[in-house]
Design a protein around this nucleic acid. Structure first.
Lengths: 122, 122
DNA sequence: GTAACCGGTATCCTTTAGATAACCGATAAC
DNA sequence: GTTATCGGTTATCTAAAGGATACCGGTTAC
């Protein structure tokens, strides 16, 4: 495998490496949310629309990769705060580029402004 | 859906939109390869290590999104050239950020440099 | 008491991704 | 003829991703 052109670490190899960590449907969405502010578990789940099972799994993986921190707060009903780490902030360029592309080319993607919810101004 | 905090198009929504187009294991890898140079079908398949079935499907989707072009060349054994479009180049920021992150944080990602294949997942 | 919220699991299920390999018609080299 | 390459398609299979929902123990409010 990878016999040809493997001497130079080509771009698409590095991209594949990155996607091993932050690939999938949710990782980057979660990280971008947590880069905006901290979230509690169900609060985050509601915000991005993800089932608790998946969210729990994704958060664990992200924590293992030291991209987020999990903090149990000593409140009356115990709450848990998830926050982006400094290491996560090295991904801000990536996420910034992704979100900007999504905004700029929203029309091209969806065909028109977010259907149904016409209440969302561009 | 999106009752709360939907007035401002938050970052993670734009990220999710983008991932709808270029999400998945292969799309960005393919695009980054095609942004380096053009490829023929099996040549590309060999380069990134993907089965022809998946490659065919991914290329079709990318072509539908006008991110790549498919050109049949009039050579003796017919060859097909795939190339990145101008629209695809608007993704260069994204892919550049991804690949750079992958290179910079390669040790953190894989656990150690690619050589030796002592891939021990954390 | 009931009800609602908290973080998170457990269970079940569907969908997709992806691998493998055979195979097509065409062409070209031998 | 055989063999190989070209760009794909087809079929079959498995593994993984993701979704839906109920539920847990705990606390708080009523």
């Amino acid at each position: 495998m990878s016999t040809s052109a493997s001497t130079c670490r080509s771009t698409h190899r590095a991209v594949a490496d990155t996607l091993d960590v932050i690939g999938g449907k949710w990782k980057l969405v979660i990280l971008s949310a947590l880069l905006e502010r901290t979230y509690r578990f169900k609060e985050l789940g509601r915000e991005i629309g993800i089932s608790p099972r998946i969210l729990s799994k994704e958060l664990q993986e992200l924590e293992q990769h030291q991209l987020i921190t999990r903090t149990v707060c000593n409140t009356r009903p115990i709450t848990v705060e998830y926050a982006a780490t400094a290491y996560c902030r090295t991904l801000q360029t990536v996420i910034g580029a992704l979100s900007e592309w999504g905004m700029t080319h929203h029309q091209t993607i969806v065909g028109k402004p977010r259907s149904g919810t016409t209440a969302s101004p561009v």
